[in-house]
C-alpha cells in the first residue's frame, strides 16, 4: 500500500489531498476503473469534488459526505458501488 492508500477497519482509504486539479478526480476514477477500489472506499480530498459526482453516477457509484478529519484537513467522502 502506498502512502496515499491504506486499509483500515472501515475499509480502503485513498488520500488525494494536495494534488493539483484534476488529479484528485483522475486518481479516484482510476481506482474505480482499474478495480482497485473494490465495492466501497473512503476518499480524503481538499474540497468537495463537485465535478466528480456526475462521473461517479455514470459508473454506478454513490457518494456520502462524511465531514473532515480535522481543521484544514479537507473533506472525507464515502464512495460505494450501487450498480449501473
Amino acid at each position: 500500500m502506498s502512502e496515499r492508500r491504506w486499509q483500515a477497519a472501515d475499509g480502503l482509504h485513498l488520500d488525494v489531498r494536495g494534488l493539483p486539479c484534476p488529479e484528485p478526480m483522475v486518481e479516484i476514477l482510476g481506482a474505480i476503473d482499474r478495480g482497485d477500489a473494490g465495492q466501497a472506499f473512503i476518499v480524503h480530498i481538499d474540497q468537495e469534488p463537485l465535478m466528480l459526482y456526475p462521473k461517479l453516477e455514470e459508473r454506478g457509484w454513490t457518494h456520502e459526505l462524511l465531514g473532515s478529519a480535522g481543521s484544514g484537513a479537507g473533506v472525507r467522502l464515502s464512495l460505494r458501488y450501487s450498480g449501473v
Partner: peptide, 16 residues
C-alpha cells in the same frame, strides 16, 4: 447544522 453541511457550505461558497 451537521458537520457535513458545514463543510458543504464551505466548499460551495467558492462557487459564484
Amino acid at each position: 447544522m451537521t458537520l457535513a453541511a458545514g463543510f458543504l457550505r464551505g466548499a460551495t461558497s467558492r462557487l459564484l
